[in-house]
Computed example of a mutant assay.
Amino acid sequence: MQGLLGKKIGMIRYFDASGAPKVATVIEAGPCFVVQVKTKEKDGYNAVQLGFIEKKPKSVTKPLLGHFQKSNVPPCRILKEFRDFSLEVKPGDQIRVDTIFSPGDVVHVTGRSKGRGFTGVVKRHGFAGGPRTHGQSDRVRAPGSIGASSFPKRVFKGMRMAGRMGNEQKTIRNLKVLEVIPERNLLLVHGGVPGARNSIVEIRK
C-alpha cells in the first residue's frame, strides 16, 4: 500500500484526449515528509508516518519539535500513519505526487464530509413529509409516527430521526487518476471526494 496526504482544491470539468467531458476533483497532493518509519520488530507493526503542510517552529510543542528534528524535517501541521507502506523510504525523505501516482491509477480517497448541523428527517434521510393539503399546516416536514403506544411501548433502536448530519469520515473507492501535474503538486481524479474546499484528504492506492 502507498499513499499521500493532500488538500482538496475544488472541482472542475476535465476534457480527456477524445474531448469527452468528465467531472474531476483537483487535489494538492504532497509533498509529504517522512517523519518516522515504524517496524514490526521495534513498534509491533510496519508503518510510515508522513507530515504535510509546514508549520512555524514556535507553534510546535518542544517534545513534538524534537520528534521532527530527529528526522531532520520541518515541523508539519498534519501527521498521519500509513500502514504496510510498500515504498522504500527513510526518515527525512520527501515524497512527491509523481513518485507514487500516475495517470490511470485507481485510488481510494478518505476525507471528512461537510458538517450540516442538526437536520430534520427530510434532509437527513430523504423522507417525503406529510401531505401539503387537507388542513395540515405544521406537519409538512414531520417524521410521522415513531412507534405505537400499546405495543411495542418503546422506540426501536436505529429509528431514523432528526439529528446531526455530516462531519463523518468517508472513503470514496476506486477513483481513476486522470492527470498528474508534478510541478504544481496537483492530482486530478475522476469524480467527487468527501469534504469542503481546503480540507485534508488521504489518497491511497
Rank of each mutant, 00 (worst) to 15 (best):
136 Q>N: 09
58 K>S: 15
122 V>W: 03
194 P>G: 04
194 P>Y: 02
164 R>V: 12
170 K>C: 04
80 K>A: 06
46 N>A: 11
123 K>N: 10
132 R>H: 14
73 V>C: 01
136 Q>M: 12
168 E>V: 13
27 I>T: 04
63 P>E: 10
123 K>L: 11
178 L>Q: 06
38 K>T: 02
71 S>M: 01
189 V>D: 01
4 L>T: 00
20 A>D: 13
26 V>K: 07
60 V>T: 12
10 G>Y: 10
198 N>T: 15
77 R>S: 14
15 F>P: 05
1 M>F: 03
56 K>M: 03
203 I>R: 07
41 E>R: 15
117 G>P: 07
188 L>T: 09
76 C>G: 02
92 G>Y: 10
158 G>C: 10
60 V>G: 02
204 R>F: 06
43 D>R: 11
85 F>E: 02
105 D>E: 12
51 G>R: 06
101 F>C: 08
66 G>S: 14
194 P>L: 01
190 H>K: 10
67 H>W: 10
2 Q>T: 14
70 K>D: 09
93 D>N: 15
180 V>D: 03
92 G>S: 07
19 G>Q: 08
33 F>D: 05
103 P>G: 05
113 S>R: 02
58 K>N: 14
172 I>W: 07
10 G>Q: 03
197 R>G: 15
184 R>V: 01
143 P>R: 06
63 P>C: 04
176 K>P: 00
48 V>M: 05
64 L>S: 12
7 K>V: 08
173 R>I: 12
117 G>V: 11
120 G>V: 02
44 G>I: 07
38 K>H: 14
163 G>P: 08
200 I>R: 09
192 G>I: 06
44 G>T: 07
171 T>F: 09
92 G>N: 12
130 G>A: 08
191 G>R: 03
109 V>M: 05
114 K>H: 08
139 R>F: 11
195 G>A: 12
22 K>T: 02
112 R>D: 03
153 K>C: 07
107 V>D: 02
203 I>S: 02
188 L>K: 01
92 G>T: 08
